[in-house]
Computed example of a mutant assay.
Amino acid sequence: MTTEESILNKIQILITNHFETPQKAFEFFDEESDGKLTKREIVELLKQAQISGFLRGIVSSKLIEGYDRNGDELIDWEEFKAAIAKIKK
């Protein structure tokens, strides 16, 4: 299992075991309730998914880079759903 697969697996486990739906997970980590996850909020999600502190900053940047379709450097619900769909594959 690659590092990316391992990280995605840990995120999937977190969402599956602790939230009724991916949307509930999104809402939980959206601390500002603005419909978007900031890098800081994504880092908290990664922390809860037990991703090591060393990797959290790198992974959060890569997640934003890979899924932020509108270029605002945030992850909105639609972008989050796209990321979750990739995890489920």
Rank of each mutant, 00 (worst) to 15 (best):
K62V: 00
L37W: 00
T3W: 10
K89R: 08
Q50L: 10
I58M: 06
P22T: 14
A83D: 05
I58S: 12
S52Q: 05
F19C: 04
D34G: 15
K62W: 03
E4Q: 14
S33K: 10
V59G: 02
S60D: 05
G57A: 10
G71S: 02
K10W: 00
K81F: 00
M1N: 02
F80Y: 15
K39T: 07
M1L: 02
E32V: 01
I15N: 04
Y67I: 11
D68M: 05
S60K: 06
Q50H: 15
H18D: 02
H18A: 00
K89E: 14
I13G: 00
I58K: 12
E78T: 09
R69S: 15
L46N: 13
D76Y: 09
E27Y: 03
D34E: 15
G57F: 02
D30S: 08
F29I: 09
E44M: 12
H18W: 00
E32L: 10
D76I: 03
A25F: 02
V43M: 07
L74V: 01
T3C: 00
E44R: 14
N70A: 04
K62T: 05
F26N: 10
N70L: 03
D30C: 06
T16P: 00
E20D: 11
W77H: 12
K24E: 07
D72C: 09
A25N: 00
F28W: 13
L55T: 02
E65L: 06
K89I: 13
I11R: 02
E79G: 03
A83C: 10
F80A: 02
E27R: 13
I58V: 14
A83E: 11
V43N: 07
I75K: 07
I7W: 01
K36D: 09
R69A: 12
Q23K: 15
E20S: 09
K86Q: 13
V43D: 07
K81G: 00
S60L: 04
K24G: 03
F29L: 07
S52D: 13
G57K: 08
D76Q: 09
L55Q: 10
I87Q: 07
V59D: 05
A85T: 04
A25M: 01
G35M: 08
K88L: 15
L46I: 13
R40Q: 12
F28I: 14
N17E: 15
Q48Y: 15
N17G: 09
L45F: 13
H18R: 08
T21E: 09
L8D: 12
K39N: 11
N70I: 06
D34L: 15
E4A: 06
L55D: 11
V59A: 04
T21K: 14
I75C: 12
D72T: 08
E31T: 14
Q48R: 13
E20W: 00
G53C: 02
F19G: 02
Y67E: 11
I75Q: 03
L45Q: 14
I64L: 13
L37K: 08
S52K: 05
K62R: 15
L37N: 03
G53F: 03
N9I: 09
E73R: 05
K10Q: 13
F80V: 05
E73M: 04
I42T: 01
K62I: 04
Q12E: 14
S61T: 12
S6K: 14
R69H: 08
E78Q: 14
Q12Y: 12
F80E: 02
L14P: 07
E79P: 01
D76K: 11
K47R: 15
K62H: 08
Q12R: 13
K81Q: 15
N9P: 00
D72F: 10
G53S: 11
A25L: 00
D72K: 07
L63E: 05
